[in-house]
Each structure stands twice: as C-alpha cells, then as structure tokens.
Nucleic acid binder design. Sequence first.
DNA 1: TGGTACATGTAACATGTTACATGATTAG
DNA 2: CTAATCATGTAACATGTTACATGTACCA
Lengths: 191, 191
Amino acid sequence: MTRHQLNATAASLLGFLHDGPLTGWDLVQTAQREIGDFWSLTQSQVYRELAAMAEAGLVEAGERGRRERRPYSLTEAGRAAFAEWVGREPGAETIRFPLLLTVLFGRHLPAGRLAEFLEAHRAVHAGRLADYERQHRDAVAAGAVDAAPYAVATLEFGLAYERAVLDWFDRLPSAINRDGARDGTAPAGPR
Amino acid sequence: MTRHQLNATAASLLGFLHDGPLTGWDLVQTAQREIGDFWSLTQSQVYRELAAMAEAGLVEAGERGRRERRPYSLTEAGRAAFAEWVGREPGAETIRFPLLLTVLFGRHLPAGRLAEFLEAHRAVHAGRLADYERQHRDAVAAGAVDAAPYAVATLEFGLAYERAVLDWFDRLPSAINRDGARDGTAPAGPR
DNA sequence: TGGTACATGTAACATGTTACATGATTAG
DNA sequence: CTAATCATGTAACATGTTACATGTACCA
C-alpha cells in the first residue's frame, strides 16, 4: 500500500473490472475499445498500472489460466478507490493536435505541402466518422440508448467531434486548403 | 549536439523564434496564447527544452538583460531543424477528456453528481467559446483573415470544437443531464 | 515598505512511448 | 510445420507535472 492518488488511467481499469475479472490483455482491448477515442493508453501502461495496483492492494491477481492468462479482480480497497475517484470533479481535457501546429506554422511550408497533410488527415477523420456512425446505428438498433446510455453518450461525443473537425476542414480557405498556389498553374483537378 | 529527433513542443518554440529573439518567459506566454488551446505545455518544459536546444546548438542564449531576462535566438541549425520538422507529416491528435471517463462510468455515481459535473464543464466551454468568438471578431476586424490566415484557421478550429462540445452537452438525454432522478422528488427547477 | 507581477531555474516524481524478449496456442 | 495471433512482461528513455527556491522591479 504505497502512496496512491489514483490516476485516471488506473481508475478506468478498476472501472472495467467491476464487470468481472479481466487479464491485462483483456483490459488493453476493452480500454482501447471503450475509452481509446478520448483517453489514449498503451499496453505497457496497463501492465504497469496493474502491477502497481496489485502492489497497492487495489486488485488481486488470480491463477494463471490457459496461455499464461492472468486474471485480475477488484478488491474491496480497489472498489473504494474507484468510487472515490469517480466522485471527484473531472479535470480539464487536454488536446494535442500536431496538425494544428503545422497549420499555424504553415507559412514555413512549401506550397501544397500543407494541403497534402490536410487532405490525408481529412481522410482519416472521415473514416473515423463513418465508423462512429455505423457504431451508433448498431447501438440504437440494439437498444443501447436505454440499456447503455452512458456509453452512447461518449460515442455521441465522438460523432459531434468528428463532424466538427470535418466541417472545419471543409471551410478552410482555399489559400490554405488547395494544394494550390501551386505556382499559380493549373488546379490539381478533381480527385 | 546530442541525439535529436525534434519534438513538437521544442519545434514550436523554434517556430516562435523565427520572429526574433525571445526569453523563456516570453516563449511561455507566446506559446500559451498561440498554441495553448491545442498543444498544452508548461513553463518547466519550456526552460528544459531551451536548455536542451542550446546544448544541441539549435538556439543561442544572448546577454542577460534587465531582470535577468535571457533572450534566445535561432541558429542556422535551429532553423534547419525546424524546417525539417514542419515538413514532416504531423502525427495523429490525442485527446484526453476526463469528463468522458466520468460519463462512461456514470452508473457508479450517485444521482445528480454527474449532472453537477456536466453543468460545471458546460459553463467552462461556454466561456471558452465566448472568448474565441470575441477573438475571432477582433481578428476579422483587424484584417487578420488575409494577414494571418494560419492563425485564424487554428482559431476557427477552436470555435468549431467548442461549438460541437456545447451542442453535445445540450443534446445529452435528460437521464444523464438533469441533476435529476434526484430520488424522483421535485425537479431542481429553472436555472 | 510591502505586495504583486516578472523572471529563471531545479528537483523529484509521474506518466507516456518505443522497443524488445519470451513463450503459448491456433489455424492453415 | 510454420506463421500469425495471443499474452505477458521489462528496460530505457522521453515527456509532462508539481512544487519549490531565488531574486528583480514596479507601484501603491
């Protein structure tokens, strides 16, 4: 039981363990699926947090199963620590968006380069939006709006976010957006 | 000249130094104003990166001025390193939004608590949106759309983002949003 | 003369990233 | 048999956060 101000990553793992024991691997998959879109984490971190929480008595490692699987389960202390954490005022969000740095410093880029970056990123966001829309359709069809309203709400955040980002891409002035000003010669033509 | 794969934070500092020498303090202010909304950084980091970049020959410390101010200026190596960085494909954005974790785990919260959090955060975002809108009006009035289109574009990202977030807050189902289900007794009344 | 904003920096620690090492099991 | 996937973990390092220590200059 070392010093422990539960961090959000660790707390989330405890959150997932409320539905039953999970292995590190399971937790990585679950976390990436459930919160990966607004809370990035890596496999390494999960194992490290699990080890630390086991040390602190917040989780307990069970018997190894097939393939060396080692399930962790929530202890009473873990349940209490989670409850304490979830009741605390959540902190401000942090966004780190490298593309916007590149945009801000766009005047240092050769003509068209920025437009290439923008196009590539736009495609990624369009793909993500399409994926969220599919997930949302499925969720609604499955009745998740009543059954799992909290998960639907976070998914809807993703939808709102991706729509806003796409809209931003589409409203960028052509001076920034077109791979244009390409020496003032012919436009790039349809894609 | 130690090993150096320029990171985005350091690169941004170099970016700002293109407009002339700045002290650590200046850089902290500038960075927080220009990129703070989509690239968080702290004062400590700035001084550390400056020291590392001075060591690596990317910047040069000048004479101390009044109040121990120590201006840093860009070297040729720094200019080259920045140019290399800005031409690289920007990485994916990372978002870390603690409130969404709390929402996802909302079923573990006592009734009304989540609604309090949502209300507090909504207010923060509303304030930020108002601020962006004011900045944007000022920028447009000052002719920045032509003079500083890149900065305006990043500001417009902020606008799009905050509008999307507010819209999301406003569309949350009342089961999540109202400080409601408060024992099923009387609603909290108008705000 | 005392408080506040300016200004620089360090230390200690927490968190995040990348790369690697190792082995089990399954599908083809 | 062998490649892919499942699964756990460590090591090394980079980055981010918080707290503190120190001192300057302005202004009320």
